[in-house]
Design a binder for these strands. Structure first.
Length: 436
DNA sequence: TCATATT
């Protein structure tokens, strides 16, 4: 009764948890275990699964009985083999926080500014062997009054913590030391993300148009007439220059019934309409005008934008029907792109693009919008810094046909969007020669 | 400047 129920596998202080990525989703824990046991002792394998669907997320944890065994698994497998079905080699590394857990790292605060490493070392050595010690210093090497300190074992660190935290004043100090476990990387990331978030919400005009978007557009550009869409000049009356899609607004790209388009003719100035009317265009029959609609939710572009408005190729045979990826199903809940902007869906070889110099404020949806004029966008992914959420300004767009991708390259490579010209190329392929 | 993911 006083017995504490043990986990069925004893994962003790010495155990090391490894994170393994690029595990094909169909693999079982037993299969992963069998593979790793060839190289190291393994206590346990846990496939990481989607909370809702229970489907594998393509990665797992592997628990080894010691650091030595874990290191064997890492050096034998990390980037060393590509499992059948995976797109890149196995990733094997210490799980988040695992290295820190093994470091036994303490934060020491309230140090007098004039104490040296030796002073700190002299005090803390009483509790164990110090593996690493640094006092944080400013630009002039002036102490910031705190330090990080690693012990050989957790017991030693804990002993120091309990003996000194809030209880010991260093010489000349009127306040006791603060000794606590150092923040983990995860905690620091969370803090940083929090900070970014609060800064972003204080940004003035967060929703305003991209300042350089208009000026950057090549207004003289004449898109190829594809026999399909024609944008009535009046439709500019309801362009929205939001950079972020509005929350809780159904994605209406490609789905506005033509009967609604009359609304778009309201509220425009005739002068503006005629000044931007496409004199040089092969103007399609007016019966097609009814099929003009805002091609995207969120960010939209003036007519001269190569991929927008004019750019849809017919996906179905009949003129005037609404081109959309999922024409046969699904009425309103999701846009074709929105559902697939996670980045995991790749098109056939030659249909996947790598894009650089994406404007900072573009997310997956904005990227998809910018490229959806050339074909069916299977997925669009802008990469963001894991810690800060800030765009890395590059990403991927996948089409279902190489011709669409090539067309997008022709039209969009060098296209100025924001302050810079896009670089649009075929994605490098690391999946060429797969093992059997 | 070329692919994530952390029960």
């Amino acid at each position: 009764m006083a017995e504490v129920k043990k986990e069925k596998k004893a994962t003790n202080e010495e155990s090391v948890k490894l994170f393994v990525g690029q595990v094909p989703k169909h693999m079982t824990e037993a299969q992963v275990l069998a593979m790793f046991e060839e190289f190291a002792l393994v206590d346990e394998v846990n496939i990481i699964k989607d909370k809702a669907t229970r489907a594998s997320r393509g990665c797992c944890f592997v628990i080894c009985p010691s650091r030595e065994e874990a290191d064997k698994a890492v050096s034998a497998c990390h980037n060393k083999k590509t499992l059948p079905g995976a797109s890149s080699p196995l990733q094997v590394k210490y799980a988040d926080g695992e290295l820190e857990r093994l470091e036994h790292k303490l934060f020491v605060g309230m140090l007098p500014k004039n104490v040296s490493e030796d002073d700190v070392s002299a005090l803390f050595s009483k509790y164990g062997t110090i593996k690493d010690l640094q006092i944080l210093r400013g630009s002039q090497q002036t102490s910031k009054g705190c330090a990080f300190l690693k012990y050989e074992t957790k017991e030693q660190a804990l002993e120091a913590l309990e003996a000194l935290n809030g209880k010991y004043n260093m010489e000349g100090s009127s306040v006791p030391l603060v000794v606590k476990w150092a923040d983990t990387e995860k905690e620091r990331q969370a803090r940083r993300a929090q900070k970014v978030q609060s800064q972003a919400s204080n940004m003035p005009n967060a929703d305003s148009p991209h300042p350089s978007l208009f000026g950057a557009l090549p207004m003289g550009y004449i898109p190829p007439y594809n026999g399909y869409g024609y944008q009535a000049p009046g439709s500019y009356g309801h362009m929205q220059y939001r950079l972020r899609p509005m929350q809780n607004q159904p994605a209406f790209n490609n789905m506005i019934p033509s009967v609604n388009q009359g609304n778009s003719l309201r509220g425009i100035t005739p002068d503006l309409a005629s000044s931007i009317s496409p004199r040089n265009y092969a103007v399609p029959p007016t019966s097609y005008v009814g099929s003009a609609y805002p091609p995207v939710s969120g960010l939209q572009y003036p007519m001269a934008y190569p991929g927008g408005i004019m750019g849809h190729r017919p996906l179905t045979g009949s003129p005037g029907s609404v081109p959309q990826a999922n024409a046969s199903s699904n009425s309103s809940s999701s846009s074709p792109v929105g559902a697939n902007s996670g980045g995991q869906i790749e098109g056939p070889p030659g249909a996947n693009l790598f894009i650089y110099h994406i404007p900072q404020e573009f997310g997956d949806q904005e990227l998809a919008n910018a490229f959806q004029g050339f074909g069916r966008v299977l997925s669009a992914k802008v990469f963001v810094d894991k810690a800060t959420g800030v765009s890395k300004c590059f990403g991927f767009v996948s089409y279902d046909s190489p011709e669409d991708a090539q067309n997008a390259i022709n039209m969009m490579n060098g296209f100025q969007l924001g302050g810079k010209k896009l670089k649009v190329q075929l994605k490098r392929d690391n999946k060429q020669n797969k093992p059997y």
